[in-house]
Design a protein around this nucleic acid. Structure first.
Lengths: 251, 251
DNA sequence: GGAATAGTGTCTATTAGACAATATGCT
DNA sequence: AGCATATTGTCTAATAGACACTATTCC
């Protein structure tokens, strides 16, 4: 490979640094939250940023994103829904490559979106940097204005990731990626309500999700952890697409 | 650069080449077609490939894609619908970075999707390479098998681009990007039929598209170029999202 | 019992899909 | 006239949304 590279005119292949950045989302206390890390060095020293890092010469993009996710959260990544526990959904989001997005050099970042269940152990920082779960409502202002500025173009990336998550739970079963392996219909509804920031009718929601083939599979047991009448527990079914979709109100 | 590559070092940035590849789609003679160029040099010499090229040190990703599109087709790019004539819709598709996707060196390609109206002048090749519009049905086999192999991982990229286009015309007004500045409801229906490969009921389709606010704006004149009763001409309206969506049959 | 949540049933307005019928150009 | 396409209208089945009602637990 090195021999092959040296055979070519260097000016024909301008070198770029390639990184992966992660928009890791979870639902905590009825709020959609994103994982942020504090930067310990310039540029943007002291600012909050999305977790990420350089892609290594011998690894693929999804592989690099999966590695960074594990380093930051301990989660293993899945690209298909229907997993719970120590797994998170991971998919490529978009690539950001404005020439001046990093003042040091030309960096192209392949952003990924991860959806994780609420982590029992927040595990702040896989490599000694401090980390936190920040409610996205505090990061993305009501309009297009951002409340708290993030490092680099990470505010834009976060906004794109949140929008992707909001739209994708409409027509896919991805909302279950925010849930533990077994969950109730009410807990799933709270995920939708937190991600969309709206209230949904519990009765119509129940009829909708239990009536969609392959979305939910009863696990057989029940729980009363939500209070009130015991609720059936479900696991995510094999279906990935929701057809017809779950409709977001106010459209 | 070669020194840095030979050993991973925290302070170094493993260098990558970054390219843009284009999935340029149009509708010709009732068939969805993709723009291909023939490779004149190894690797994959003589194979058909997607148009593309290296991102320059001082240009952004969308800028590079727009430049390549203009070089290959003469089209100017728009990221919003509602344009016709010499304009094409252009959006980022996904990024492909498998370590061995290019045998020469590590190349990360940011693929873009362009939707263009049928070009009066096919203009085969902006830089002396031969080019052609290939029906995607001949390139992507019935199953997941490809009919004709493309260079590199371009078959996979093309399949992703076609799938993106097929799903995006469901819930956006992007189908108008395949049409000339003024078009009839029947011509728009033929776009949907070509992209999806299905037959749609002309009467229900007419009611649906004319009843969606902001999708179509009457231009005032009529045409008989389709034969039969003269049809109203429309321009693309300002709406970008179709709500409720155009439903793809057989789902 | 009272509060809270789970789950079912019912009604209505909207809509997708099938398809009859009419309109208006062309040869 | 006969053909082709455009455009409007009608009917039916399915569904989203509103909401009454019952079920089952904990306090």
């Amino acid at each position: 490979m090195i021999v092959a590279m040296s055979r070519y005119d260097r000016s024909a292949f301008p070198p770029f640094a390639v990184t992966v950045d992660l928009v890791v989302l979870t639902v905590r206390e009825h709020a959609l939250c994103a994982l942020l890390v504090r930067r310990g060095e310039p540029p943007f020293q002291g600012y909050w940023a999305l977790p990420g890092g350089f892609v290594r010469p011998d690894e693929g993009l999804a592989e690099a994103a999966s590695r960074e996710l594990a380093e930051e959260t301990g989660l293993r990544a899945h690209s298909t829904p229907g997993h719970g526990a120590a797994g998170a959904h991971l998919e490529q989001l978009a690539t950001y490559g404005h020439p001046q997005r990093d003042p040091r050099m030309r960096v192209v970042s392949v952003a990924h979106l991860a959806l994780a269940p609420d982590l029992p152990t927040p595990r702040p920082g896989g490599d000694a940097r401090s980390a936190r779960w920040a409610p996205v409502a505090e990061l993305l202002g009501p309009g297009q204005t951002e409340g708290v500025p993030l490092a680099f173009d990470h505010g834009e990336i976060l906004a794109d990731g949140v929008e992707r998550a909001r739209s994708k739970i409409e027509y896919s079963s991805l909302a279950t990626a925010f849930c533990p392996p077994e969950f109730t219909v009410g807990e799933l509804r709270q995920v939708y309500e937190a991600v969309w920031g709206v209230a949904l009718d519990p009765r119509n929601f129940h009829r909708k999700v239990t009536g969609t083939p392959g979305f939910l599979v009863p696990s057989g047991s029940t729980t009363t952890r939500q209070g009130g009448r015991p609720a059936q527990l479900f696991k995510a079914g094999g279906a990935t697409d929701l057809n017809p979709p779950m409709l977001r109100p106010e459209s």
